[in-house]
Design a protein around this nucleic acid. Structure first.
Lengths: 157, 157
DNA sequence: CGGGAATCTGTAACCTTGTTGCATTTTTCC
DNA sequence: GGAAAAATGCAACAAGGTTACAGATTCCCG
């Protein structure tokens, strides 16, 4: 595929600028793959797996590139990953939380999407318990999201 | 290896009897692999991965057998899997908890062992939140266990 | 600008874990 | 004791993560 004329990544100008700023702030190389991956995550309200990111970018980047891009963004602190019970990591931008102390996630049993439960405080924030020192906590739910259960919020019956 | 004279599984008589009772109560076939796997789990105070179980049994059983043994024990409700943040399932007997509502686990960053935090109540037991219906919750910690941090319980400094 | 050093990318390949198919063996029950 | 039902071992595949290495891109400084 011609490099010059190949279709552009699905990232608008504002998102692109924000991505470039994030990279600059961390002193990372500004590469097309990184801008694209950050752009996808900026536009997503829920964590995404590597494969979801690759699909969103129409497989224009090799999966190893996505993998390493996420690894470098993660080590720079821009991105963190959440574990959601299946065997794939879910990545999200470190905006108001980070990997050690993150909001819970809920994976919908019906649509399969993973949602952030940002209103729900990480429950057990204590640093130690009964001789155990807690450095990191991860909370994961399985259930039904509002979109898949329109009457779920009226749980009176 | 001769089947008759091959070394016995590391299961004492009492444990074996208990395992047989559990299998009988569920109407499952009493096979050597199942008795061995249940025995290992009975003697363990923490969840174990398939590979750990296979190692404990000195690879006397094929890993597919371990896999399917655990699957049948799980579907019978004798065993459940826990969420520990890495890509492998950890199995434990369903004694005072089950898969949907289980105590938190802590994986020690130093020794790698996963511990059950049975004294710590599952924190967010609510059935619904903000339109989300919660069917199952899993809590995982990373930190240091008491054995690896002798002064961890005196966190005064 | 321009060029070299540092870094990133794509391809290939490997590893671990989970999973299924099928022929053989074991268990159960009458 | 024997037939039906179920479990086991072996082979093989799948998915995701990870590493090696050569070639391409980015950065920085003159």
């Amino acid at each position: 595929m011609d490099l010059v004329n190949r279709p552009r990544d699905p990232v608008d100008t504002n998102t692109r600028t924000e991505a470039l700023n994030l990279l600059k702030a961390k002193g990372l190389y500004k590469t097309r793959a990184r801008v694209a991956v950050i752009g996808v995550l900026l536009q997503s309200d829920s964590p995404m797996s590597q494969d979801q990111i690759a699909q969103r970018l129409r497989h224009r980047y090799d999966r190893v590139t996505i993998y390493r891009t996420l690894a470098s963004l993660r080590s720079a602190g821009l991105v963190h990953r959440a574990f959601t019970g299946n065997r794939t990591w879910q990545f999200e931008l470190s905006r108001n939380c980070w990997e050690d102390q993150c909001h819970p996630h809920l994976t919908c049993s019906r649509c399969g999407k993973t949602h952030c439960l940002v209103g729900l405080e990480p429950p057990i924030a204590c640093r130690s318990y009964n001789g155990f020192v807690i450095h990191r906590q991860q909370v994961h739910f399985e259930g039904i999201c509002p979109q898949c259960s329109p009457c779920a919020h009226t749980d009176g019956h």
